[in-house]
């Protein structure tokens, strides 16, 4: 079975050619012989051409895996080849230049608004500073746009998931 795997802005092709022990797995142009043995929960022991790795796999969403190897976290989006591309479908939903919302990631307090209504913002620009867990955090615009609506005031308490700012 073949997958496309998006990781850090690059798309890889990963194919599981034979199962069993060892399995043959091709990543892009390289084929690995892999012994993949479950230990407990999401923990697996991998022997890759004699090299041993401990790997933790957590499923964060459909096909979205958080994979922990030797102190590094890899967030990878897998997709079975031949299936309808989720990403393409989603991009269609969103549409280009659609509204984006800045959402409070957790309950906290609005420390500072960095933009005004009607202001043009660029991708990555700081929009609002909220305080949670004793720390101030700047929430940023995911893409360029114009601030359409500011739903909170400085000093206000906000709940987790609450929409703070709408950018169009």
């Amino acid at each position: 079975m073949s997958y496309t795997a998006d990781f850090q802005g690059r798309t890889h092709r990963v194919a599981v050619n034979t199962m069993g022990s060892p399995a043959a797995v091709r990543v892009d142009e390289t084929t690995h012989e892999v012994d993949f043995t479950p230990i407990v929960g999401g923990l697996f022991s991998l022997l890759v051409g004699g090299r041993s790795f401990e790997v933790d796999v957590v499923e964060e969403g459909e096909g979205v895996l958080a994979i922990w190897v030797e102190g590094e976290l890899h967030q990878i989006e897998f997709e079975e080849e031949g299936r309808l591309r989720r990403k393409a479908a989603r991009a269609g939903d969103k549409g280009r230049g659609g509204p984006q919302t800045i959402v409070a990631p957790m309950p906290g307090k609005v420390v500072k608004l960095l933009v005004a209504s009607g202001q043009e913002v660029t991708s990555g620009q700081g929009i609002i500073v909220i305080e949670a867990m004793k720390m101030e955090n700047e929430l940023k615009a995911a893409g360029p746009g114009v601030v359409k609506e500011i739903k909170v005031q400085e000093g206000a308490g906000v709940g987790g998931g609450e929409i703070l700012v709408v950018i169009e």
């Binding site: 890889h12 194919a15 599981v16 990543v27 993949f36 697996f44 991998l46 590094e72 897998f78």
Partner: peptide, 12 residues
């Protein structure tokens, strides 16, 4: 990252 890609595919 290569190991993570291998593990992810085998997991699925």
């Amino acid at each position: 990252a290569e190991i993570a890609l291998v593990a992810g595919a085998l997991y699925l």
